[in-house]
Design a protein around this nucleic acid. Structure first.
Lengths: 250, 250
DNA sequence: CGCGAGGTTGATTTGTGTCAATGCACGTGG
DNA sequence: CCACGTGCATTGACACAAATCAACCTCGCG
């Protein structure tokens, strides 16, 4: 089962064979999206929902003076903007960081997906995890120094990519350039470079082209103060109390 | 109509008289919550949803070494954690910043609320605006200097409080102390103080006790690069395309 | 072969953190 | 009613992390 969408969803819900078949159909027919293109831009009216099937994308905002802040990284299996149809316009953009393939899911299909209680629960879980991730990034930007923050991001990406089978035990492909990393961390490209050097000198990471090697995951987590809690990869299914199965649909 | 919950919801949806009556009933019977107490703590199983009816609260996380990051400010009318029941445990805490009154909404009532399509739409709108706000904060922390960030926050709070009738044309009550502001902005209390002084010297603000006076809202917005876009106070109702009214419920 | 995007490194400046002392208002108890 | 304590705000001197500016390097590719 190499479908990242199915794989990810399965962390948040239990799926039947029928669900799986349906999801496979929905997530088939991905189109290629070249590197550095917008899937949707600030100000646009939200239409289709985007599902990344390969490559990397990101959510970002550009300030009037040209500064860019990346607010989320999307890896294969991630849904970009499930619920924004409620708002009249996008208050940010979503674009690719590498060559990617994406599925454009029309509103009608979204309707079918959330009409299925198990799938709906999974989508909810994904949404809440995205929110938790955003919060954790805020903590990183507010409280952690550059090296800590970088270590934290690397740990997070490692885990998220492993969850969809796209990372080795100790390595994965970096999303984008050092400049992208800079806009993501809220620091300068120059400082990204120096911070990478620090982690390398400490024996925590190594870089071979686009590939990041984690030489010591344990110590990297310590440095970043990384607690995988917020990714909720353990407790997604059924442990939550809540509004009851019948109402969970709504 | 001085019910902040109703007032806020009305920005995101159209309500019937019946809806209003129901919402009034739900949001009645608020209990007092003293300053500096948690409504729910990290690690807890989510139970009731919290609705702030007066005073200020915040979403925050404490790091192992004691640093605190505030990730959201809740003003009257805000719902704190509408959907977390899906997750098994809280990955952050929510606590008051001042004496406040809150309504604890049990899961069953939440179910009734989201069973009503108009109310459901309003709650969705609130959720999406919260997310947008969180993203904007990330931009602030990543890209804006202390003075810009502070100006931005003040503009945001001013608008959000005006929306529920709790701010004057040019003033509102600050949430918490300078230390709270520091944990919110990701800087030191000392630096908060100095930054306040800068804004004061520029003739942009004035402080009288807990009360913040905006001496020049226009220039304050320029300094902060504030664009109220992300609060979606204009385009909440009906402009959004989407999954269709019937499906919007789900 | 030469060009350009991305990466690397150094010198210097600037913003923010740190540490520490002082001030101020308020509430409490003697 | 005053003395004191406590929490918060303010100010100064200094340290440090990150930004800035600028040069140079390296590789893949046309």
């Amino acid at each position: 089962m190499d479908n990242p969408f199915l794989r990810k969803l399965a962390y948040g819900t239990d799926l039947t064979e029928g669900d799986r078949a349906f999801l496979l159909k929905v997530s088939s027919g991905a189109r290629p999206a070249p590197s550095r293109t917008d899937l949707i831009s600030e100000g646009d009216k939200p239409e289709d929902v985007h599902l990344v099937m390969s490559g990397y994308a990101c959510r970002y905002k550009i300030l009037p003076d040209g500064r860019r802040q990346i607010m989320a990284i999307f890896v294969p299996g991630d849904v970009c903007d499930l619920h924004v149809q409620i708002l009249g316009h996008m208050d940010h953009s979503i674009g690719t960081l590498s060559d990617a393939t994406v599925v454009d899911i029309p509103p009608a299909v979204i309707g079918e997906l959330i009409a299925n209680p198990r799938i709906n629960r999974g989508l909810w879980w994904m949404t809440l995890v995205d929110e938790g991730t955003l919060r954790e990034w805020l903590v990183s930007m507010g409280q952690r120094g550059a090296a800590e923050q970088m270590a934290h991001i690397f740990c997070e990406l490692h885990l998220r990519l492993q969850a969809v089978g796209l990372a080795g035990d100790d390595s994965f492909d970096l999303p984008g350039t050092q400049e992208d990393l800079a806009d993501l961390m809220g620091i300068t490209p120059v400082h990204v470079n120096r911070t990478l050097a620090v982690l390398r000198e400490k024996g925590l990471i190594e870089i071979a082209g686009r590939r990041l090697l984690l030489r010591d995951v344990e110590r990297l987590r310590e440095v970043g103060g990384f607690d995988p809690n917020y990714l909720h990869l353990q407790d997604g299914k059924g442990h939550g109390r809540g509004v009851g199965e019948a109402r969970m649909i709504a």
